[in-house]
Simulated assay, not measured.
Amino acid sequence: MPGDRDPQDVVAFLTEQHARIRRLFDDAAGSRGHERAERFGELVRLLAAHEAAEEEIIHPFARGRIDGGEPVVEQRLEEEQAARRAVRALEDLDTGTPVFLERLARLRQDVLAHAEAEERYEFTHLRVAAGRDQLANLAKAVKAVQAAAPARPHPGTAPAAVRNGRS
């Protein structure tokens, strides 16, 4: 995504995006009016691009190269699907309502737990399974997918392809 530093490996790049996602949740919750809507829109765009790249590049790699990768990837895909549904429901709400803030707080908790699980169960194993050059190539592939990713998540589209081994 524009504005991100350019780490040389995919784990550093995606972990940095997790930190940016945390900040955007905080910014959206801590702002009001038009600014909250803008921060939430920015968050939705980053989540969509981030998850699209993981589903197309990272999860298939992890599934095939990490011992026990299949259940790890399946759990992450379930979490991503739940987040898509929650984002879709939030998009239908007025960002100024207490209900929006309550649901945003729940989404934040779920997305950050998902990010921690990725970092612990997927990313640490990627560093072992892939060499420096491969991590750099994966970062380039992730960035290319993100550049072409939709601005909003689309429930039910990418995970089926990943689940069936097509990417």
Rank of each mutant, 00 (worst) to 15 (best):
A19Q: 13
A144K: 06
V72S: 10
A161G: 14
R88N: 11
R36H: 04
H59M: 08
Q8A: 13
V162G: 11
A158P: 04
P7R: 09
N164Y: 13
D92M: 11
P153C: 06
H114V: 07
A89T: 12
P60V: 12
V99H: 09
E70H: 00
H34C: 09
G69D: 07
H154Y: 13
G156L: 06
R166Y: 15
R120W: 09
A117H: 12
G41V: 03
A147G: 14
G41I: 01
A144M: 02
V145F: 03
E74K: 05
L135E: 06
S167E: 13
R32L: 13
F100W: 01
H34A: 14
G64A: 15
Q81N: 12
R65F: 12
V87K: 03
A117I: 10
A105I: 01
A158F: 07
R45N: 09
L107I: 10
E118M: 02
E79Y: 05
R88A: 14
E55T: 03
P98H: 10
R108F: 02
L112V: 05
E119N: 12
A53C: 07
A83P: 11
R84T: 13
V11P: 04
R45Y: 05
L104H: 10
E38I: 11
Q17N: 12
R152Y: 10
E42L: 11
E122M: 14
T124Y: 12
A86R: 14
R103V: 09
A48T: 05
G96Y: 08
T95R: 05
Y121S: 14
A52T: 10
H34F: 11
V87E: 00
G165A: 09
V72Q: 01
S31T: 08
L43D: 06
L24F: 07
H125R: 15
L126F: 02
L138C: 07
A141G: 07
A147D: 08
S31M: 02
L107K: 04
E56R: 15
R23V: 14
T95E: 03
A149K: 08
E102Q: 11
A105D: 04
V145S: 02
R163E: 15
R23Q: 13
G64I: 14
V44N: 04
H34T: 10
H50A: 03
A28H: 02
H114L: 00
H154V: 15
F13L: 03
E54V: 02
G165W: 11
L135W: 08
R166E: 11
